[in-house]
Design a protein around this nucleic acid. Structure first.
Length: 458
RNA sequence: GUGGUUGUAGCUCAGCUGGUUAGAGCGCUGGAUUGUGGUUCCAGAGGUCGCCGGUUCGAACCCGGUCUUCCACCCCA
């Protein structure tokens, strides 16, 4: 029996128009990746489970799609383990592969496996889908694309500066004005935790701090208290809650707060360097803002942390993120290779551009010219003309049957075709064809032997 | 994973307190118009009311389950 087809939760089909818009973003991002000297790689859509598991924290493990083993996968589970119903213990027995959760960890694996072939510093970009078993909501999907650019093998802060420029270049090209590149540094967060005497609670401290603009100062303090951070520690950290002023002002205050922490001071120095350099280089359409509450990806970032938020007034989570990780390849056995990278969230950028109507107007124009079909002889002549146009690189098509002109014109309309060519009985005799401009409604006649004359007007 | 929300024609949505044959706009098809689209007019097609079960004389409407959508957590692009 025929059943109603459906697709899994959090996945999508894309229409021709959507694909055109997505490709537009891909092309812009890719172009700037290449201009900045990044090279493309691809990795498999699924990895060995042990490559992925444990790299994103407990929460991440939960969100990784596991692939069931082929064959009689329950055979390897002994009776005792089976009856224990312990999912975390049974999972590795019945699933040895998992879908890619992001592009960074597979890249680290790639670098380690190919270390002898790579020329460091290695700048790679990668545009591929990733999968997360998350609960979907607006801008959150279970299958989505990440566009990553990372540099490994250089600990120069110039890389961070270039990555800020790369964000700016892409968003400028996309005509997206007013995106904010938020910048923080893991060392600053560690320094604060150290200074207030909560060094071992760094992650809890920063996760709570991250929610400042969402749940407010009181909410953050409450969460910190519940995580076991002392009242006096919170009191010491309270200047952070009201940090304001320019980037330079904020860094000055942070420098003061962290003067007794070597690590924190180093973080402040790093940010100062980046902020000053970016200020002197200038940005075209993005803002750069220090944000000490920014605390994403702490599982592996060690230095700079980036996150890009959409322009004000657009309700959308971050549209990009990234950071510096000094030891990501360490977990795969390659020490002392520093990496830094950023990611563009294609699906979210799409939603933002759509909301702000920033896609180029003619982006889903799939045809430049449609030849109408008047019958056997005329149709054949029109196909010849279509071929000439195609050879000239014009997106041209011939309506396949001699349907009523009304219908053929309506088809041209729905396809958004700017020019329609009429080649009927009379034109066949005259050796001509008529071009109708569908927007203005005007018509012009050209000689069939001189189609170039028409081509030149396009 | 927790709590909530949504689902009716291809699309956007009405549908009263449970009551006969479930409606509109847009789109689609045909015609006015066999060589001229967008505007207009006329006609028509199209729905197991997400799915499964229950309550009831009777369910699009009430109840349970399930899937899906969106939202808030968690986390994150």
């Amino acid at each position: 029996m025929a059943q109603k087809p459906s697709i899994p939760k959090g996945t999508r089909d894309f229409t021709p128009s959507e694909v055109a818009k997505r490709n537009y973003i891909f092309d812009v991002v890719k172009k700037h990746f290449q201009i900045f000297g990044f090279q493309p790689i691809e990795t498999p859509s699924f990895e060995n489970s042990e490559t992925l598991m444990g790299k994103y924290g407990d929460e991440g493990d939960r969100l990784i799609f596991k692939i069931l083993n082929s064959g009689d996968y329950l055979k390897k589970v002994d009776e005792e383990l089976y009856s224990s119903k312990n999912s975390t213990k049974i999972t590795p027995k019945i699933s040895e592969k998992a879908l890619r959760y992001d592009l960074t960890v597979p890249f680290a694996r790639y670098v380690v496996m190919h270390q002898n072939e790579l020329n460091f510093p290695f700048k790679r970009y990668q545009i591929q889908p990733v999968w997360r078993a998350d609960r979907p909501q607006k801008g959150r999907f279970r299958e989505f694309y990440q566009c990553d650019a990372d540099v490994v093998g250089s600990n120069s802060l110039l890389q961070e500066i270039e990555l800020v420029q790369l964000y700016d270049a892409v968003f400028t090209d996309l005509k997206l004005k007013g995106a904010t590149i938020k910048l923080n540094n893991r060392k600053i967060l560690a320094g604060i935790a150290e200074v207030i005497g909560a060094k071992d609670l760094l992650v809890d401290f920063t996760v709570a701090l991250d929610k400042l603009d969402k749940i407010g100062e009181e909410g953050v303090k409450k969460e910190m208290l519940s995580k076991g951070i002392s009242e006096t520690a919170i009191e010491k950290a309270s200047p952070l809650f009201n940090l304001s002023g320019s980037n330079v002002d904020q860094l000055q205050m942070l420098g003061e707060l962290l003067k007794d922490s070597e690590e924190g001071t180093k973080g402040v120095d790093e940010l100062c360097f980046i902020v000053e350099a970016v200020a002197s280089l200038g940005l075209q359409s993005c803002n750069l803002a220090i944000d000490v509450t920014l605390a994403r990806g702490l599982n592996y970032y060690t230095g700079a942390i980036f996150e890009v938020s959409a322009p004000k007034g657009v309700s959308m989570g971050s549209i990009g993120g990234g950071g510096r990780y000094d030891d990501l390849t360490g977990i795969f056995g390659l020490k002392d290779v520093s990496g830094v990278g950023i990611s563009f969230g294609l699906d979210r950028i799409y939603l933002v551009l759509e909301e702000l109507s920033l896609f180029p107007k003619a982006i889903d124009r799939s045809l430049d010219v449609l030849c109408l079909n008047f019958g056997n002889m005329e149709g054949l002549a029109a196909l010849k003309l279509t071929t000439v146009l195609r050879n000239a690189g014009i997106k041209a098509d011939l309506y396949p049957s001699a349907a009523k002109l009304n219908k053929q014109f309506k088809y041209a309309n729905s396809r958004n075709v700017p020019y329609v060519i009429l080649l009927g009985e009379q034109e066949l005799i005259d050796g001509s064809f008529v071009v109708k401009n569908m927007e203005s409604g005007t018509q012009q006649t050209y000689s069939i032997d001189n189609a170039q004359e028409f081509v030149a007007t396009l």
